[in-house]
């Protein structure tokens, strides 16, 4: 009984792992296709954190 439950649990874990890998593959491909179609039109302006600290380690 316990052996069967263990096997079922293992199968379910494998299915979850495969499902997650499948999601990552398909989602990644779709993102790449979307970027190719839209190009770089949606580039947002980004500002890095200004690194200027005083002697008391405050910004």
């Amino acid at each position: 009984m316990l052996k069967e439950l263990g096997v079922i649990l293992l199968i379910m874990i494998v299915l979850v792992i495969i499902g997650n890998i499948w999601f990552d593959i398909v989602d990644g491909i779709l993102e790449k296709i979307k970027n190719l179609i839209t190009g770089n039109n949606n580039k947002t302006v980004w500002h890095e954190f200004p690194e200027n600290k005083d002697k008391n380690n405050h910004y």
Partner: peptide
Amino acid sequence: PDLSGCGE
């Protein structure tokens, strides 16, 4: 989340 930068 790490506040390394920001947008407009």
